[in-house]
């Protein structure tokens, strides 16, 4: 039986891992390599890393006391984590060209998540799907509720596209995307649960898998989303940083509640 995935999303800003709230506030929480290593140790189903920096790409931490070589560029970082990443790795952010996609995949990403180019350069999405396969192209769709209706927002949640998420997601599928990463901006970092209604609408509008993100503050929120929608995966960021052993505990809880969850790997040798 195909299992539904529980997916941590990590946000990278200028080389640091950050906690995000409503795409606006970011709190630095440390060295990204260490955070990724913790996720790999937890044997997560899949890992998504989104580089949310906007300006020039920088890696600003230059501590020399790490037990590993300092990571100085984005590609150092991807290569470094790919060495140990025995689970699927999706990398997103700052992707504008085929070359951006190629470099991320060549350095060890299994998939890339694209967002802005769905609006600015749709032909690049189609070309990428042909070159790397649809399965390597995840369409990231960020939305906000404005006066009761949901609309897709572009450029880190700052620009209203005027289009509803279901329609945007369908368009992304038609362009060649193999999965949708649906993120509720209003719920980012709020921990009040998923936007089940919007997730259902998007799931119904496409025939590719949907990863639902935004709003998980408690493991019951994952359960609710899995029970009440046909999302193939539930994703979250903050909960996995600020609660002790949140991922294994959520996995145990969900495995007891549902049969379509991949259980934790027991007694995994180091």
């Amino acid at each position: 039986m195909l299992k539904r995935r529980l997916v941590p999303v990590l946000y990278l800003l200028d080389g640091w891992m950050v906690r995000s709230q409503e795409f606006q506030e970011h709190q630095y929480i440390g060295d990204p390599v260490l955070h990724v290593e913790r996720m790999i140790d937890w044997d997560v189903d899949e890992l998504i890393v989104l580089d949310i920096g906007r300006g020039e790409m920088t890696f600003e931490h230059h501590r020399q006391d790490y037990r590993h070589k300092p990571v100085l560029t984005l590609f150092d970082f991807i290569q470094r984590i790919a060495v140990e990443c025995r689970i699927p790795l999706t990398f997103g952010g700052r992707i504008r060209t085929i070359e951006d996609i190629r470099t991320r995949i060549q350095n060890g990403a299994d998939k890339v998540s694209v967002n802005t180019i769905l609006a600015d350069s749709p032909q690049t999405v189609t070309q990428a799907a042909r070159m790397f396969g649809s399965q390597a192209i995840v369409a990231s769709v960020d939305f906000r509720r404005v006066e009761g209706t949901s609309r897709v927002y572009l450029r880190h949640g700052r620009e209203d596209s005027g289009v509803v998420p279901a329609k945007w997601a369908r368009r992304a599928q038609d362009l060649g995307a193999g999965e949708i990463l649906l993120n509720a901006i209003d719920r980012d970092g709020i921990a009040q649960g998923y936007d089940l209604e919007e997730i259902r609408k998007v799931v119904d509008a496409v025939t590719i898998p949907v990863i639902a993100c935004g709003g998980a503050g408690h493991q019951k929120h994952f359960q609710q989303c899995l029970n009440d929608t046909d999302a193939n995966a539930v994703a979250a960021g903050n909960i996995f940083h600020f609660t002790e052993n949140a991922y294994p505990r959520a996995k145990k809880f969900l495995t007891q509640a549902r049969s379509d969850i991949r259980p934790l790997t027991e007694n995994r040798p180091a």
Binding site: M1, L2, K3, R5, D45, Q135, T207, I208, P209, A233
Partner: peptide, 8 residues
């Protein structure tokens, strides 16, 4: 739904 993505 296709692709068939995930753990089976």
């Amino acid at each position: 739904r296709l692709p068939h993505v995930g753990w089976n």
